[in-house]
């Protein structure tokens, strides 16, 4: 098992090299010049311009720039942000918990609702409920996140006034980061002594809409996948065996069928995590969520090369690690995968 994990992590090296080259080159193809943006369109003294370009190492040929970047990166230094002048690694880890919290909650939302819906649709196959649900899932799947996010804000924040429009936490409270997960940090004893549960509810109300916006597509996919996987499993011989043993309908479905139906669902959930990150870029921008998605968008606008390169590398690493976790989860649900 350890060898399996190490082997998977070993795959990370070529992946990262490939991705870093791609992001490095692509970013330089995009029109726009970070130095120019910093100095402003007008009034840039050519001497100052050249000096700045030299200081940032941008006067070198691209391949030399890459070698410098890769050498530093291998030592854990991804450079400093051109805008904030802070190390990219630090910037990333300041924002990463916010994205992770949002992503995990969104995915949990999708799993907790999607799997039961899919099971019911499969069990009540071809009923009105089934058609209704699958139609809804198609709708959910086809909805652009940015549009859906705006609709949610319009209804729940603007019209009904139930939830805040943006941000992660009310400005009334200051929460010392501990895990970086607001839902957890607001429950520490110090916070509760000071403000009670109010910060927790504030964090939750800020989280709900972006999580729903981000979790809708995964929810639709998971519900569909669960339904088709369940339908396949319900026709298997061992389901007939379970019934012939005298098991209740509930136990047959919830234990004997679901356990087997979960195998493809685990794979899908793993894949969804990748798209969750993509979703984060849109969702965070709409909801002003202080995570890496919004950070990346801002850095792309500013042509903040080190941030873009570093951020993309981090995301790639995360996706590979998540895939390893999915493979492990796969072995848990599928006995045939255990060596």
């Amino acid at each position: 098992m350890l060898r399996f994990i190490l082997g998977k992590l070993g795959d990370l090296v070529p992946t990262l090299i490939g991705i870093s080259i791609l992001s490095f080159v692509l970013v330089r193809f995009v029109p726009g010049d970070p130095v120019m943006l910093l100095l402003g369109e007008r009034g840039a003294d050519p001497a100052v311009y050249a000096q700045m370009k030299k200081d940032m190492g941008l006067d070198l040929p691209v391949w030399r720039q890459y070698i410098n970047f890769a050498t530093d990166a291998a030592q854990g230094d991804l450079g400093t942000s051109i805008i904030s002048k802070r190390p990219v690694v630090k910037e990333f880890f300041d924002r990463f918990p916010a994205t992770l919290e949002l992503g995990v909650v969104a995915l949990l939302f999708a799993i907790i609702i999607g799997i039961p819906l899919g099971i019911i649709a499969a069990v009540k196959r071809n009923s009105f409920y089934d058609y209704f649900l699958m139609g809804g899932s198609l709708l959910g799947y086809s909805m652009p996140i940015f549009w859906w996010g705006l609709v949610l804000i319009l209804i729940f924040s603007v019209q009904l006034g139930w939830t805040p429009v943006s941000g992660r936490m009310s400005v009334m409270f200051y929460i010392e980061p501990w895990t970086g997960f607001m839902l957890i940090d607001t429950l520490t004893s110090e916070v509760r002594e000071l403000d009670g549960l109010a910060p927790f509810w504030s964090a939750l109300s800020h989280l709900i809409l972006p999580a729903v916006a981000m979790g809708t597509i995964p929810l639709a996919v998971i519900a569909r996948m669960t339904r088709s996987s369940m339908l396949e499993v319900l026709g298997e011989d061992y389901i007939r065996t379970a019934k012939a043993k005298g098991l209740s309908r509930y136990r047959t479905v919830a234990v004997h069928a679901l356990r087997n139906a979960l195998i493809p669902i685990v794979t899908i959930v793993g894949l969804m995590f990748g798209s969750i990150i993509t979703g984060a870029i849109l969702t965070e921008t709409i909801f002003s969520w202080p995570g890496i998605g919004r950070w990346l968008v801002a850095s792309i606008n500013a042509r903040d090369y080190p941030v873009i390169q570093g951020g993309v590398l981090f995301i790639a690493t995360m996706i590979v690690i998540i895939n390893v976790l999915v493979d492990l989860a796969y072995a848990v649900v599928n006995p045939k995968m255990r060596g």
């Binding site: 011989d237 061992y238 087997n260 006995p335």
Partner: peptide
């Protein structure tokens, strides 16, 4: 079912739950 009437099937490999 399963108590007073027991039943076995044609393809035993697929009649057992793999999980």
């Amino acid at each position: 079912r399963g108590a007073k009437i027991g039943m076995i099937f044609q393809d035993p490999m697929s009649a057992l739950n793999p999980s």
